[in-house]
Design a binder for these strands. Structure first.
Lengths: 243, 243
DNA sequence: AGAATAGTGTCTCTAAGACATTATCGC
DNA sequence: GCGATAATGTCTTAGAGACACTATTCT
């Protein structure tokens, strides 16, 4: 099986790949009170993009997204959900894609399929920042975390994809209770509080926030954590898995 | 410009069309307290399906969905929203598609692109049943309203697409206040009440429902409607357009 | 003791649920 | 008046917001 970031995948003929459709995952992380997004810098180009990939002929769309994500992050069990398809007919930019291919050592023909029209399926993923090992890939480019408000200009409509991903995350955060996927297994109420405030970009009174979270009955209180700091030690919580 | 349901569109070469991607709109209507869906019967096959179509090379995905919808319903301004992409690699069934093409008088080659893998973008539309003129199309097949709980078995994964569409509609009904798109311009509180009960499939106390709707400030009360029935005449309401 | 953060208790206000009451129409 | 449905009023309850108060840890 070819790896997604194997240069042969994007070779002149693109055997074994579905043409005209790409998968672009927006991978969210959370660390020290900051929302992060995983961005790739394409080798020798200075061009930043989402760590996207293509679909293999005998692979479900969801599996393709999962494979690409695992390759980038090294994690297999993460929260991953499709949220939107981007299908403007002129959203691809042959000049930019050509630049990327050249940066990888290819000289794509005029008619190369990756220069043609593309539809992109957007996924968003929530990962535990502390368990991530970024997989370096000298051919495609380095993957790096960026703080959400420090993301550099991106190619094509990738910025639009990220914004739509965050909008979807905001809507689903309360409904689907998916925020826990951004935290380590054990976390404090303060961690969770900061996470919610960061994603929703608004203040939440900690007292009411705690009451609401506890009333959901999905948190398991562990023991006090000795932080070594000069204040009361917080409890640790674990997210109760599906009962 | 070729019409979507022009047989040439699905001709051996499919010039001018994006290959490997289809658009399948789930068109909802509401009449006499029943939720309806528009289903096509492919000519000479007895096969039922969503009234889907293909995307033209120079056409945005959203425009393609709009074009297909307008073609089927005769309406141009309707609520239309993308909700999910269906991308299982084996979701297409060459045997079924071949049957459909044969029913239209074609003998597709083994390698015909429409027999290959397909990704389908699901849209759902809310239309005013009273303003619909179904566009008959002898080549593709007749389009007809079915009550939601009387939909016949459909080809491929179209039943799954419909179920996901309804699930999305249920979630968005309260949030996005889109139910009005299923009603005529003027309607009674009872109409709206029945609509909500039907879509959400649960009883709502009419008194509380009315209070909630009125408190939203999006309804304009017109005058009493004389129904000729032996009871108090209800008010008519109009949905306040964006102020 | 005092600073700093964690966690609890409680008052208020709003919105939802349940149900009683009044209004209007045609017979 | 009577049956039927529309519309309003109001009591109760659940949850959100605001804020005062207590608890724990280290210096």
């Amino acid at each position: 099986m070819l790896r997604q970031n194997d240069p042969r995948e994007i070779s002149p003929h693109g055997e074994g790949l579905v043409k005209g459709v790409a998968v672009d995952p927006v991978i969210f992380g959370f660390h020290e009170g900051r929302l992060k997004v995983l961005i790739i810098e394409h080798t020798n180009t200075g061009l930043y993009a989402l760590p996207g990939g293509y679909i293999q002929e005998k692979e479900d769309l969801d599996e393709a997204a999962k494979r690409i994500l695992t390759m980038r992050t090294g994690l297999s069990a993460v929260y991953l959900e499709q949220f939107h398809v981007f299908g403007k007919y002129d959203r691809n930019d042959a000049g930019v894609v050509r630049q990327i291919l050249i940066g990888q050592g290819f000289s794509p023909a005029e008619e190369h399929w990756s220069l043609q029209r593309f539809i992109s399926v957007g996924y968003y993923a929530l990962v535990d920042y502390t368990r991530i090992e970024l997989t370096p890939d000298p051919t495609t480019g380095r993957c790096e975390w960026f703080e959400f408000d420090q993301i550099p200009p991106l190619i094509l409509d990738h910025r639009l994809i990220i914004d739509k991903a965050l909008a979807t995350l905001r809507i689903n955060l309360d409904q689907l209770l998916i925020g826990f996927n951004l935290l380590p297994e054990l976390f404090t109420m303060g961690d969770l509080h900061t996470l919610y405030e960061t994603i929703l970009d608004k203040k939440l009174l900690s007292t009411n926030f705690q009451r609401k979270m506890l009333s959901l009955g999905i948190l398991e209180r562990i023991e006090k954590k000795k932080t070594g700091k000069a204040h009361k030690a917080p409890y640790l919580y674990r997210f109760k898995s599906t009962t």
